[in-house]
Design a protein around this nucleic acid. Structure first.
Lengths: 243, 243
DNA sequence: CGATACCTTGATCGATCTCAATGTCGGTGG
DNA sequence: CCACCGACATTGAGATCGATCAAGGTATCG
């Protein structure tokens, strides 16, 4: 509700887009950027905690997340979305909400489909994103199925750190993470209280500290160990497109 | 190890393939089946419980499953694969094993990539499969995060029943499921003993019975209720290809 | 008949949830 | 400037669900 002055940058020209190297359209050569612009149907800004109603968009700035609720009203966070991510809503009953203030490019479904139907490289880029989503979900499933609270928390923190690193949004020892403990809890199938205790334990053991929106990795080895971190960084086997 | 006479059919000509309507290549018109045949690099038969080493294949007969283990040796089943499913190995550290005796067509990665790079419809068909995988994983994640043992079991049984139905492998009231209780447990993050108790409870309450490789849905409504079943059947938003 | 794989049951233990406070901090209105 | 408020984080105690450990039971197969 609070308006505050918006520090959130809005996406500008596709040609100079800062997140394109990480986004769906990274495979489109500079000479054909015009075709991208025609797929973009709107630019939008959504404030933290607001729902996002557009069904396909590329996040430009800020974080978002997808979630569902069970009939008894408990929330499960399905994935976090970072700048550059292609997000699709209502693939199922899932909702998408802004975690921080966000800005993004809304894509026209039909025009995107048409573009992909004409450009196999783009379709494969789309598939590549899906393969990554799947890999992430599989890791998370393993967390919820077979890791204890500390392991789950450590694993998610490492995952987010890694994703940020790849985009240049983190240094080796830490990163800003705009999450609340409730987000961690709802992503990991824990109660807020227990998530809190797990974080406290990580801090107590000198493994990692996550406070005031900042993650600090104090002992990477211990953390990977706790998380059962797979050294293999999930290589897509079929979507070896250019980038 | 036991040889038995193999009741497992081997895939034959692509043109007459019985599972193609559900498989990646469903989008290739009959006139161009020849191109499919060139992607197939081998036909294989793998016995129940054996590992599958091929990295990309279309399952033709039997069931398979993907799984990982945590460093402490606990198994997490990531997904079950049914006839027609495209399966990729080693996208991460995950293994694939035959659940029953299986037969499948091994695909040559490079030739498949080349085909998809030439035929956007095929690439989109690939993406479509990934979207479905993702939807399934999200449902499962919700199960492990927010549903209790009975809910998880009910949900997975309904999911498998639905997938079989769509292929004509089930009737409204039940279906053959070649799983052991250990598979349910490892897919759902439960101990075998507790999975057993959950199944017993479902039977006791007249909801569903899963015994000797057969699922019987006794009270569909109660079961969906327990499972927190989402009525929305996960519609892909971007991959509206022909089939 | 024994062996093996799978299912079932019981008793106990422990991780995590729930419920109920308390603490902290930034912002806001007086 | 101060008192208050709301959002979030933290802590404690007790209740629970599901894990573990330990036996049996059952069926199939050689």
């Amino acid at each position: 509700m609070v308006a505050k002055n918006s520090p959130i940058p809005l996406p500008g020209s596709c040609a100079a887009c800062a997140v394109r190297p990480f986004a769906l359209f990274r495979v489109v050569p500079q000479a054909r950027v015009g075709e991208i612009a025609r797929v973009r149907s709107a630019v939008r800004l959504v404030r933290a905690n607001e729902a996002i109603r557009d069904s396909v968009f590329t996040l430009y700035a800020g974080w978002a997340f997808s979630w569902t609720t069970t009939p008894d009203g408990r929330r499960q966070i399905l994935d976090f979305h970072l700048p550059g991510d292609l997000v699709e809503r209502s693939e199922d009953g899932a909702e998408v909400s802004a975690l921080t203030d966000t800005s993004f490019c809304v894509l026209a479904k039909d025009r995107l489909c048409e573009f992909m139907g004409r450009d196999p490289g783009l379709a494969l880029s789309y598939a590549d994103g899906l393969v990554r989503d799947r890999a992430r979900l599989r890791e998370r499933l393993t967390s919820l199925g077979r890791r204890d609270a500390m392991g789950r928390v450590a694993h998610l923190l490492l995952e987010l750190h890694g994703r940020l690193s790849r985009r240049g949004g983190a240094d080796r020892t830490g990163a800003p993470l705009p999450l609340k403990q409730a987000h961690l809890a709802d992503a990991l199938g824990l109660s807020v209280e227990h998530a809190n205790r797990a974080l406290a334990a990580l801090r107590r053991d000198g493994v990692a500290s996550f406070q005031k929106g900042r993650l600090d990795i104090l002992d990477r080895t211990a953390m990977e160990d706790l998380a059962g971190w797979s050294t293999t960084p999930a290589q897509p086997v079929l979507t070896r497109i250019g980038a």
